[in-house]
Design a protein around this nucleic acid. Sequence first.
DNA 1: TTGAAAGCGCTACCAG
DNA 2: CTGGTAGCGCTTTCAA
Lengths: 352, 352
Amino acid sequence: MNTRVTMADVAASAGVSTMSVSYTYNRPSRVSAATRERVRAAAATLGYAGPNRTARSLRSGRHNSIGVVLGEKLTYAFEDPQARRFLSGIADACLDADTALVMLPNLHRDKDIARIRDAQVDGYVVWTTEIDDPLLDVLVETGRPTCIQGGPDHPGLNWIAIDDRAAAGAVAIAALNGRSRPAVIALRPDTRRESTVVRGADASDISMPVTRSRLEGYRDACLHSGIDWSTVPTLFTTDNTRAEGERAARLLLHDNDIDALLVMSDELALGTLDAAAASGIDVPARLAVTGWDDSPAAAAAGLTTVAQSLFDQGRSAARWVLGLSDGVENAIWRVEERTSTASETAPKPRTV
Amino acid sequence: MNTRVTMADVAASAGVSTMSVSYTYNRPSRVSAATRERVRAAAATLGYAGPNRTARSLRSGRHNSIGVVLGEKLTYAFEDPQARRFLSGIADACLDADTALVMLPNLHRDKDIARIRDAQVDGYVVWTTEIDDPLLDVLVETGRPTCIQGGPDHPGLNWIAIDDRAAAGAVAIAALNGRSRPAVIALRPDTRRESTVVRGADASDISMPVTRSRLEGYRDACLHSGIDWSTVPTLFTTDNTRAEGERAARLLLHDNDIDALLVMSDELALGTLDAAAASGIDVPARLAVTGWDDSPAAAAAGLTTVAQSLFDQGRSAARWVLGLSDGVENAIWRVEERTSTASETAPKPRTV
DNA sequence: TTGAAAGCGCTACCAG
DNA sequence: CTGGTAGCGCTTTCAA
């Protein structure tokens, strides 16, 4: 263990002050070439590997690391394709900045909040959470820069997201072209996990901002298409998985006369295609389906979906948190219109 | 920012020494109930959230965090299903122990090694690397407990893995039942990324221990089945993806007369099934295929494969690193024999 | 360009 | 059970 060698040892060995050693590592230009050389030589001789990070953090208040808060067990984050792309973007920014990445699961217990508050990080990137998550105020109190993917827009914290409401409206319009009996398959409305079906779902009841905004957008499109929202069933899912999507579709298609499924993720949407295929329901002739995120599997399945780059959003959020940019970039989206929403009047898929 | 409130402030306010405050947080049983109560009250009044972690680390030398070293960009770790399951297991152990998880990509540059060495962690879990990775000696020098999934078995470091050689031998025997012209699709032999095909591949040339051991096992099985290893082509892939598997299979099947593909991952193996289907080659009648890891997709595709729990291995490795167990658990495996290796003499798939 | 002093906030150690 | 002392290894601040 060379941990024993300190800056003072190197200074003594090189015949200079500790400050010259410190400067040699932190601001080499402030030190004469001769001093620098002697310090390097002494360090090499003693096997000094550079300043102890903990002592440096204690004194300077900086950590060279970023915390990523996931509102789940990490297992979930690693399994969810969207979360993964976002994480990859963060990791990319960290690599550029030589910053460590600390994973901070938040299961909404007191100890989780304490762990996140006390984490030795310079700032936080949060993967979407509830509007009234008590963690948010705790993060504000840390005084550390924080950016939340998908919102909410909480005073004192930054956020990055596409305009989910507008995107939901646009993709729903693609599905509702000539159709009038839609149903919605929604992501979970809050951090609890229970599956429910309601008609005319009230977005203001929903505390996950992403789910809320997308639901508002679907509703906008229904109103615009002359569809009575109070008749439209919404199924809130528990997991963002293909199997859950299939289950949800079976339930909705069994109990209702549906000709369009507005689905808040590609994973779930692919599951609905499985269910339709199993039931012999032709997509798009008898049922239009839309997804969200434009995954490779969605493209392969001809699924109309909302395309956004979660990688870019992760990268942008992390860069802002690390002080490498003045603000987060504007997150862009577009509707990828494919065969799952094709109709006789508009037979040729196109990109809007 | 309540960061300003220190233990000394709380002690003064409660009319006790700093040590009593420290004990109240760290070893409450060593303090009288009365003192404890007064400290808690003073802390609440002042908004003191508990000991500063950085100062605690500096003084105690402990960090309450574990480093996960991945021999790639994190993007890769998040995309690779096997790495993900292993990471999930580590995360699970961390959650139990209230330990932070620090992600440490290793792109084999000097700065990566320095970042890993200087990370403020109590120990490391490493996702398989090369036998001669210079990082290994650096990890030994840190004096911190380290466990490597898949090896290598490096002096001073611990490792966890199944007996890859034995498992490879067993799964290959399942494929070679009545077949005599196998080819191997291997994971990469080292951290470089280039695709090559060789006949009679020499395992001792290979520096990734997992790849080496599996190749040895396949060779064992060939010898046992009377197949001349020097005639067996091995294709080393660059990425562990389905698309790469398809590409590899096309290449091998085009240039050779092959009746069995021994493939080192399910992802790659599923790609070979795609290639076979596209070429109208019947599996298993004209071609047997084996995979590795028993992913859900492998089960769905009827792929014979080696089953192991990378989640359990990650959890076990992390628990040992965190000092929660005396040693890593024995990692178990079994061959899941399915239709992709069925033959006339043994028509009924079974589990060995 | 260099250096001395003064802690960052906490806990190991040992004495009461 | 309680508390004083003595730093952990470094960087900020200010002076030379």
